[in-house]
Design a protein around this nucleic acid. Structure first.
Lengths: 340, 340
DNA sequence: TCAAAACCTGTGAACGTTCCCAGTACACCG
DNA sequence: CGGTGTACTGGGAACGTTCACAGGTTTTGA
């Protein structure tokens, strides 16, 4: 008793009950909006709550109800980081909007190391959250596997490689890549190259597939260069290689806006003008796209809707037994600006 | 009993105790690494935990111990969003690193509306977290006030306007701005302007103050333009105004890299070469800085360390009574590249 | 050799809720 | 007017932990 901490004991449901002159049970019913409470009792409880400054203790509530009112959003730091993936911030906002509407609290967890992986898995198992949204999981991801194993309501943003029977939302990368490549061809380009990347992820693979489909007989494997990441430097180097291999190249599909921006830098240095000498298109419709000189034609990702749909998918699973097994693909659109 | 959910009841401490042939108390002692447990008992409990797949129920633990092992990081969405502020992602990683080390779980909360504000305040009060880190709070921020009022361990990143006696970390914006401006002057610039912004925040105000200090008698209020946000478009427009007001201008301090990038775009359009005609410097050392043509001289913010220090500040407060009242300013450095 | 200290263990009582059941009061209906 | 249903209320029992305490055994020290 000597070193009692400064924080005073919070008011409990008992204090409210005493102040209102009713029982615990009645207070609980008022708090949870249940029927069978007389108007007088309800009013007394409500004013008592304000009077004593009561706020429900979530730990106690969770313990009893076995739910937490929170949903986790898991971001894998290397390679999908806030800094690198321009859409993550927007996805997050979309998710937050839907959950907030349903009175769920979104908690964002960052996985930066295997150490984090373990702790996050424990956190999920510990009953802190009622569901989980996972962004850009990679194959053999330990968290994705843990989630699948424990059967907690979950949704993936981006088709999860390897794991079956799980809910996800994503975009149709094949169709989007095909669509923007077709428009590039429609403007008269005949020697079209691609700076591909992230071929170890479905997004990267699918964009390449769509590109090839669209070109048909015009496709020349010599005009495809590959890089591990969707990075600006990949664009600089990729464009350099393409110019070297094919000086007559007249179109480029960069698999991300950052790559396209890098390609434009190389082209400027090389004295090529865009879109006169070459048409350049990107993917993402991120902040890069408008910043480029000239403004970039690109594929718009419905990032906010991806986040919203993922949240909805999780909410749907909560409290239901039949889990929606398969995923949803959202539509993309081509934004035609000045670079092609 | 008819609609028993699919999720099986998790193993409890009782199950472990039974499997290990010891009592609840002993299991609890093992889990919490307390002394006074015989080696045999410890071994038995440890293998029993694996056997029954026990994971502690955090709700029950929180209820009893009144702590959660989690710390909140609050981001205000409009104006400090992931997308706009290039440092936020890095701050977040720094924070996560320190907390992870101390076995605390970081949960990121996003405040997007007043509705969110209320729910987050309730969340904090509900005992979900043991401490809170708040990024770039503005004056009269409801969450900041709630946190101050409830006396939960807290730290601010960025000097909080209005609220007194609270722990914070930040950078010395005045000194940093003075330092980079001085170097600009040292290269022979005499007509130096500034594109200022966010003057309603301490960061914006202080950068302007440092600029003025460094210039001394060279300072000309005519060469300062102001904008509300640290945005690229502010740079475009600000540079245009400066060129109009003073065609003989030979140096510009942009109050952020995004602004500097915008200024460079305007200068390119106007046919000015950098750094020959004008020297341009920015602030942040963000991804923009390297992307610029030419690469931007700028002030490097120790974003990761800011995050780490804030986390440490909160950890220090947990369990202690004497709250460190004042803040810490971290050192910045000037990164000299090609733009000045 | 014996008291005191150190080590180890089990048990009861919380922590603050919600849920369920029993019980009361009143209204309605035949 | 008795029975049945509906509206409302109170209180016991749990949820899964931790903590304090009591009791037992072993070691230590004079």
């Amino acid at each position: 008793m000597t070193s009692e901490p400064a924080r005073p004991r919070a008011a409990t449901i008992h204090d409210v009950a005493r102040a209102a002159g009713v029982s615990r049970g009645t207070v609980s019913r008022v708090i949870n909006g249940e029927p069978y409470v007389s108007p007088e009792a309800r009013a007394a409880v409500e004013s008592a709550i304000l009077e004593v400054g009561y706020v429900p203790n979530t730990a106690a509530r969770n313990l009893k109800t076995r739910r937490s009112g929170a949903i986790a959003l898991i971001v894998h730091e290397p390679h999908s980081l806030f800094l690198e993936d321009p859409n993550i911030g927007t996805i997050l906002l979309g998710t937050n909007a839907v959950l907030s509407q349903a009175d769920y609290q979104l908690v964002t967890l960052i996985i930066d190391s295997t150490r984090d992986s373990d702790r996050v898995a424990e956190y999920l198992r510990g009953g802190f959250v009622d569901g989980v949204i996972i962004i850009s999981a990679r194959a053999l991801d330990p968290i994705a596997q843990a989630v699948a194993a424990m059967g907690i309501p979950a949704a993936f943003v981006g088709r999860p490689p390897g794991i079956e029977g799980i809910a996800y939302v994503g975009i149709d990368n094949v169709a989007a890549a095909r669509s923007i490549t077709e428009r590039l061809v429609a403007t008269g380009r005949r020697r079209v190259g691609m700076i591909a990347s992230a071929l170890d992820r479905d997004s990267g693979r699918d964009r390449l597939a769509g590109f090839q489909e669209a070109l048909g007989p015009l496709f020349d494997p010599e005009l495809v260069v590959e890089f591990p990441l969707y990075s600006h430097s990949a664009g600089i180097e990729g464009m350099r290689q393409l110019l070297e291999r094919a000086p007559d190249i007249d179109g480029v599909f960069a698999s991300s806006d950052a790559i396209a921006a890098g390609a434009l830098d190389t082209l400027r240095t090389a004295g090529k003008t865009v879109p006169d000498d070459l048409g350049v298109v990107g993917f993402d419709d991120s902040a890069w796209a408008l910043r480029c000189q000239p403004a970039l034609s690109t594929v718009h990702q419905p990032a906010a809707q991806l986040g919203e749909a993922a949240a909805q998918l999780v909410l749907d699973q909560i409290g239901r037994v039949d889990i929606p097994t398969e995923g949803r693909l959202l539509d993309t659109s081509v934004v035609w600006r000045l670079s092609a």
